[in-house]
């Protein structure tokens, strides 16, 4: 890992330090190492703590990403633009993926507005949309959210658009940590396109 990223992570870890009992500072500073693949990102995922709509606390890499097939998008409950549509389409995608969701595929929606989107609010949101098991709505501190948002590339190069919640990035990243394969598509794409993307993450079995 290069120095720039390490320093960035250290400075952010100060903010989250001590949130989770039993978590040492070293755990929090260390980015997720995962298996290193040729030319793939190294230490990409900050191991920040997030709280789910189920009341659980999760470390981003260790508990949510490692060895899993995942879909990740960012949202906020007050979004009247693309989030309702994205969530609807992701619900359809979840239905199409069937019982694999919660078994080897996991879905995460991380709020961009953690102050407003408290645990009861995101729980209500998940219930409203009929979200099934295997899909967590998550919140982290504002600074950790920002760290994660940048690590995931959910950033608009135009600072004005980037600063405006209404124009937040409506993309869902899909990935398989075990093989280091990641792709993305619009989070409000038709569910069949989202599912087609997720299906590219399975290691290919020879027939």
């Amino acid at each position: 890992m290069d120095m720039r990223r390490r320093q960035f992570l250290v400075s952010s870890a100060v903010i989250v330090g001590g949130v989770l009992l039993g978590t040492t500072m070293a755990d929090l500073i260390a980015p997720a190492e995962g298996e290193s693949f040729d030319g793939s990102p190294d230490g990409r995922f900050p191991n920040i703590v997030l709280h789910g709509h189920d009341g659980g606390a999760y470390r981003f890499y260790d508990d949510l990403i490692r060895d899993k097939i995942v879909l990740i998008n960012m949202f906020f409950t007050g979004c009247g633009d693309i989030c309702p549509l994205s969530t609807q389409h992701l619900v359809q995608a979840q239905e199409m993926l069937g019982d694999r969701v919660g078994r080897d595929i996991f879905m995460y929606s991380i709020t961009l507005n953690p102050e407003l989107d408290t645990e009861p609010v995101i729980r209500d949101y998940a219930e409203t949309y009929g979200v099934g098991p295997g899909w967590l709505f998550l919140r982290a501190s504002r600074d950790d959210t920002e760290l994660l948002r940048r690590a995931l590339g959910f950033v608009d190069p135009d600072p004005a658009l980037d600063a405006d919640l209404e124009t937040h990035i409506g993309v869902v990243k899909f990935g398989n940590d075990a093989i280091g394969r990641w792709g993305a598509c619009p989070s409000f794409a038709d569910a069949e396109e989202i599912v087609a993307g997720v299906r590219t993450l399975d290691p290919i079995k020879r027939t």
């Binding site: 009247g80 504002r142 920002e146 919640l165 209404e166």
Partner: peptide, 18 residues
């Protein structure tokens, strides 16, 4: 699907240089 509607405050997130 158009942006707008006074659903959200415009303040946004505190942003470091993009």
């Amino acid at each position: 699907l158009t942006a707008g509607g006074a659903l959200v405050a415009k303040s946004g997130l505190s942003i470091r240089a993009a």
